[in-house]
Simulated scan of single mutants.
Amino acid sequence: MNPRRKQRLAIVAAVGLLVVSAAGLMLYALTDSIDLFYTPSEIIEGKDGQRPQIGQRLRIGGMVVPGTVNRDSQTLAVSFDLVDTGPKVTVRYSGILPDLFREGQGIVATGVLVDDSTIQAQEVLAKHDEEYMPPELAEKMKGIKHVKPANGSE
């Protein structure tokens, strides 16, 4: 091989190594920012054989169980249970809930897993359209009816 080809090959190899290293570092840096989506059943029973770790950031989606919304009269703290088709998970949140938040309504919360069945949420989003659900959740919930609050309020 002539010297010019060796030089080109070395440059191409160095650039390739830099690109692979940069991609690896970006993926490593993003691991703390990735929020995986879980349903209450997947948190309790596991998702693909693995349960989320305590302290892990995650998103959880489900229906607010009627009668479980507990508000602290002194602060903005609230706790409520979420359910999909199986076990319940408790969500604790401190802040102003969205206007569309109601018992029996679907919500998505972003937070940290505190223990096996409790999430400390930093953000709670109420779905603006009750009819929409992620395809995986809709498949699991076929045929299940959710009871709406009797008086239509929170």
Score class of each variant (00 low, 15 high):
105 Q>L: 11
102 R>E: 12
43 I>Y: 10
44 I>T: 15
46 G>F: 12
78 V>Y: 01
127 K>V: 14
30 L>G: 07
143 G>A: 07
135 P>N: 13
111 G>F: 04
74 Q>G: 02
80 F>Y: 09
141 M>V: 15
23 A>T: 11
108 V>E: 11
25 L>Q: 01
94 S>E: 11
76 L>H: 03
22 A>F: 09
11 I>F: 09
123 E>I: 09
31 T>W: 01
151 N>Q: 10
28 Y>P: 01
94 S>A: 12
89 V>Y: 11
87 P>F: 07
50 Q>M: 05
118 T>W: 08
140 K>H: 07
88 K>E: 15
11 I>G: 00
131 E>V: 08
19 V>L: 15
82 L>C: 04
34 I>Y: 13
97 L>P: 00
114 V>I: 14
58 L>S: 09
63 M>R: 08
105 Q>F: 12
129 D>A: 10
30 L>Y: 09
146 H>C: 05
3 P>Y: 00
26 M>P: 00
148 K>A: 14
130 E>Q: 09
69 V>L: 10
116 D>K: 06
100 L>W: 01
14 A>C: 11
79 S>H: 08
81 D>R: 04
149 P>K: 02
39 T>R: 04
85 T>L: 01
5 R>N: 13
104 G>V: 05
62 G>F: 04
88 K>C: 12
33 S>E: 15
120 Q>C: 07
126 A>G: 02
65 V>A: 11
142 K>E: 15
120 Q>S: 13
83 V>I: 15
45 E>A: 13
65 V>F: 07
110 T>A: 14
117 S>P: 04
10 A>Y: 07
53 Q>E: 07
5 R>E: 13
123 E>S: 08
53 Q>I: 12
39 T>N: 03
122 Q>E: 08
45 E>C: 07
63 M>A: 03
138 A>E: 03
50 Q>W: 01
132 Y>N: 06
137 L>V: 10
148 K>M: 15
18 L>D: 01
105 Q>A: 15
22 A>I: 06
127 K>Y: 12
106 G>M: 06
104 G>F: 04
140 K>N: 05
107 I>Q: 01
79 S>Q: 07
95 G>H: 00
18 L>Q: 05
60 I>C: 07
61 G>E: 07
50 Q>A: 02
81 D>T: 00
127 K>C: 09
121 A>F: 01
142 K>D: 13
89 V>A: 12
154 E>Y: 09
134 P>F: 07
5 R>D: 11
30 L>K: 10
86 G>Q: 11
19 V>Y: 11
153 S>P: 00
67 G>M: 14
126 A>I: 04
5 R>G: 14
44 I>R: 15
32 D>T: 06
29 A>D: 10
75 T>I: 10
27 L>Y: 04
144 I>F: 08
20 V>N: 11
23 A>Q: 11
108 V>I: 03
24 G>M: 10
80 F>E: 05
78 V>R: 02
125 L>D: 10
108 V>Y: 00
103 E>T: 05
